[in-house]
């Protein structure tokens, strides 16, 4: 019988991504309810030394395969190795991050393991021994409760939503043979072009300062950049601003852009079209600054200021600077 709550950890060049700890913590909680163990899979090159660290968040066992072919990540290499191990060990639940890598990998595993998956979940619960995964659909216009009838029951978790909670255990590190056949690898990463802005990606940001049509043009974003610098935030944009060419595609938040869930989302000059609300609705706190008191964004905001953003935002930057000084 399938047993165990497993996660696939994510690391780049020997450094864990935060989602790995969120995954282990979420798995620990489920495993405690089921009275089962937490297993983690870690693939990479020269990563054996960091395997035990997952114990800090409650992993009982960490399965490690160390191979140069695992770095940088490719679907072929990772999916083949994980599918082989999962088929041998038969966990009942398998969790991955709904990150760039996790989305690519988890969906391939759905095929390899002939199972089902709930994508981009914001909550998980156990009922009658089965996993129930809660996830936004229609970009947050409604939620679905997903039940997977095959094994493993797979779910990918939205980054920044599940807390990483320390629950120290001494994790047993188990090396496994990934059985990699280099001839099977059909894709190759030729180049990693790093973003040199030093800014955290929108999907991983704790604070986002976002601007819409009300910014009036690309130069308007200067005051948002200043506020973002003080807050350690990443700047986002609405579809209107991206389509107008004011901001790059990668900055777009919304149904056809990125889905984000920061602790704080500051929407400036964004009316709150349903398309946009869909992409940021799971933010913990939402602030709206807009001179139109009827803008739909105010219905979603925890705090709203009805005023000229070009006057409010610089003042807010000053005030935050004072508070953080």
């Amino acid at each position: 019988m399938a047993k165990g709550v497993w996660i696939v950890a994510e690391q780049r060049y020997g450094a864990y991504r935060k989602i790995s700890f969120e995954l282990v913590s979420a798995a620990r909680k489920l495993a405690d309810q089921l009275g089962e163990e937490v297993g983690a899979i870690l693939l990479g090159s020269g990563i054996e030394g960091i395997a035990g660290e997952l114990g800090k968040y409650g992993a009982d066992k960490v399965y490690v395969a160390d191979n140069a072919l695992f770095e940088p990540y490719t679907t072929d290499a990772h999916a083949a190795a994980i599918a082989k191990l999962v088929k041998e060990q038969n966990p009942s639940i398998l969790l991955l991050g709904a990150s760039a890598q996790g989305k690519d990998l988890s969906s391939r595993l759905v095929g390899k393991l002939a199972t089902g998956m709930a994508t981009d979940c914001v909550d998980l619960k156990i009922a009658d021994g089965k996993l129930i995964s809660i996830r936004p659909m229609y970009a947050g216009k409604c939620n679905g409760e997903i039940v997977v009838s095959a094994f493993p029951q797979m779910a990918s978790l939205r980054p920044n939503v599940f807390p990483a909670v320390e629950k120290p255990k001494t994790a047993e590190v188990v090396k496994f043979d990934p059985g990699l056949d280099p001839g099977q690898l059909k894709t190759k990463v030729l180049e990693v072009q790093k973003d040199t802005s030093g800014k955290v990606d929108l999907t991983e940001a704790n604070v986002i300062v976002s601007g819409g049509r009300g910014m009036k043009g690309p130069e308007g974003y200067g005051i948002l950049e200043e506020l973002a610098d003080v807050l350690g935030a990443t700047v986002g944009a609405s579809r209107a601003a991206v389509d107008a060419g004011w901001r790059p595609q990668k900055d777009q938040v919304g149904q056809t852009g990125k889905v984000v869930s920061p602790n704080l989302y500051i929407a400036c000059g964004i009316s709150g079209a349903i398309q946009h609300l869909a992409g940021m609705g799971s933010s913990k706190y939402i602030v709206a600054i807009n001179k139109d008191p009827d803008a739909p964004i105010f219905a979603r905001a925890d705090y709203g200021i009805v005023d000229d953003l070009f006057k409010v935002v610089p003042e807010l930057t000053k005030e935050v600077k004072k508070l953080l000084a």
Binding site: G140, N143, I146, S149, I286, F298, D302, Y303, G304
Partner: peptide, 21 residues
């Protein structure tokens, strides 16, 4: 042969009313 299903569709969770400053 179904592997997964949407057992229930729900409206999005309600947000508490906000404050206008």
């Amino acid at each position: 042969a179904p592997k997964a299903k949407i057992a229930k569709t729900l409206p999005p969770p309600a947000r508490p009313p906000g404050k206008i400053i």
